[in-house]
């Protein structure tokens, strides 16, 4: 009974003299291997050459600043709640007078930590954030670690550096549709 269309009847017929000589088959095989010898190689020379990454790739996190360099995060804790791996923890603090150029809202995250061993890079924190503060960058991977202390990323390594705020690349990386919407709303002053 034929169970599948891919089944093949096995034949146990004796090999012919030509087949028993091996040599024609070996010459055929040598032809195949020499063709591969001159083929273009598939290797990507990693540190020098890098494969382009998808624009929707979820890589290393970044805590965004706004156009004038103020931190967007208000330590509301929604990302920590959304996180299925419980990788995010934070301590909130109140903005003091004179710190308006540093933090956008009256409340900010004094401590913001992501445990990179727990993080599963699902991107739910990004979706949960009402202030467009946290993003998973599409062009940056979380590096490998050599000690346990390296694993917990604090604000020193998460907050976007001031130099990248105005550069075109940083605007592009990590900007989702909702982010663009929020930015537009913020610019139009209708929030």
């Amino acid at each position: 009974m034929q169970l599948t269309s891919r089944s093949k009847r096995v034949s146990n017929k004796k090999l012919s003299l030509g087949e028993r000589l091996y040599l024609p088959a070996i010459v055929g095989g040598l032809g195949i291997t020499i063709k591969h010898f001159f083929k273009k190689k598939a290797t990507i020379q990693y540190p020098e050459e890098q494969r382009p990454m998808s624009s929707v790739y979820r890589g290393l996190h970044v805590l965004k600043r706004d156009e004038v360099g103020r931190e967007r995060c208000t330590a509301c804790g929604l990302c920590a709640v959304a996180c299925p791996a419980e990788a995010i923890s934070m301590i909130a603090a109140e903005r003091q007078p004179g710190e308006e150029h540093l933090y956008r809202e009256e409340k900010y995250a004094a401590v913001y930590e992501i445990n990179m061993l727990r993080c599963i890079f699902c991107g739910l924190c990004e979706e949960a954030c009402p202030k467009s503060a946290i993003y998973l960058q599409s062009d940056k991977l979380a590096p490998s670690f050599f000690s346990r202390a390296d694993v917990i990323y604090g604000k020193d390594r998460l907050v976007q550096s001031m130099e990248t705020i105005t550069s075109a690349k940083s605007l592009k990386s990590g900007l989702t549709t909702s982010d663009r919407y929020v930015d537009k709303v913020w610019k139009d002053g209708k929030y």
């Binding site: 291997t33 020499i34 591969h36 010898f37 083929k39 190689k41 598939a42 290797t43 020379q45």
Partner: peptide
């Protein structure tokens, strides 16, 4: 090298 080239590597 020959092994690599035949297997499409470098």
């Amino acid at each position: 090298k020959v092994a690599a080239f035949i297997q499409d590597r470098l």
